[in-house]
């Protein structure tokens, strides 16, 4: 381990924990009603949608089919594992075909 890599990893550790702790620190000081409260409730879905959307759109037919398969499997089973498995299986199958 070089000095640079120790510094880089130590820096990653510090900023990442500071972000997690900072969110908790903020949570104690945010109001529980009104716009901010309504806003925080919407954060989870919006963050996850933002996380996945560019990858799905930039992907090809395999990724689009797989995203639809994941959605359909979730509607049918209401549980995580079959939905994930359906998505991965469809990506694999479509890539074999194309």
């Amino acid at each position: 381990m070089t000095l640079e890599s120790v510094l880089a990893i130590a820096g990653m550790i510090a900023v990442t924990y500071a972000i997690r702790a900072g969110g908790l620190f903020l949570a104690d000081r945010l109001p529980e009603t009104g716009f901010v409260a309504a806003w925080l409730k919407q954060v989870p879905g919006a963050v996850l949608a933002a996380l996945v959307a560019p990858g799905v759109v930039a992907g090809g037919v395999a990724e689009w089919c797989a995203a639809v398969a994941t959605a359909l499997a979730f509607i049918a089973t209401r549980s995580l594992l079959p939905s994930m498995a359906a998505g991965i299986a469809v990506v694999w199958v479509v890539r074999q075909l194309t």
């Binding site: 879905g45 996945v52 799905v56 990724e63 995203a67 994930m84």
Partner: peptide, 30 residues
């Protein structure tokens, strides 16, 4: 297909949060 595991995981988590049509606004905007 292992590179899709990441996307499939977060898609499944997202669908798990579905509460109703109102969710379309934040999801599609995001």
């Amino acid at each position: 297909g292992l590179d899709f595991v990441f996307t499939a995981t977060f898609l499944a988590l997202l669908f798990g949060m579905w509460k109703g049509k109102a969710d379309f606004v934040p999801w599609l905007t995001g």
